[in-house]
């Protein structure tokens, strides 16, 4: 059976989505995604020549508002949700790769 997506492509998609798959998961997801993409391909039966795509069904079009900054005064509550914070800042690991040169 010709597959619609192979392990190499799934690996590529996972890396674009910032996900890491073990080799077992890669196999498992490849089989499932292939089947689902097969479903997607049934859309090719539909003649959509000249049909406009629909991206929103809202009845509100181009609503404008003033660009005003609003301070909710909740710095501490916001920082409490950060995995690590210090001196009022969110702390992240060094961006420079420490694994280089190991």
């Amino acid at each position: 059976m010709a597959s619609r997506i192979d392990q190499e492509q799934v690996q590529h998609v996972a890396s674009l989505a910032k996900l890491d798959l073990s080799s077992d998961q890669l196999k498992y997801f490849t089989t499932q995604l292939d089947e689902i993409i097969g479903l997607f391909e049934t859309l090719s039966e539909v003649d959509t020549t000249g049909v406009e795509p629909t991206s929103s069904v809202s009845d509100q079009i181009n609503v404008m508002r003033e660009d005003v900054a609003d301070n909710w005064g909740q710095r501490d509550a916001l920082l409490a949700n950060a995995p690590e914070a210090e001196n009022g800042y969110i702390k992240v690991p060094a961006i420079i790769d420490e694994s280089e040169g190991e």
């Binding site: 949700n81 950060a82 995995p83 690590e84 969110i90 992240v92 961006i95 420079i96 420490e98 694994s99």
Partner: peptide
């Protein structure tokens, strides 16, 4: 980064 789960044992931003 700002909220939600952050993995331990990370060496760089991509790892995070």
């Amino acid at each position: 980064i700002r909220y939600g789960h952050r993995a331990n044992d990370v060496k760089n931003l991509e790892d995070v």
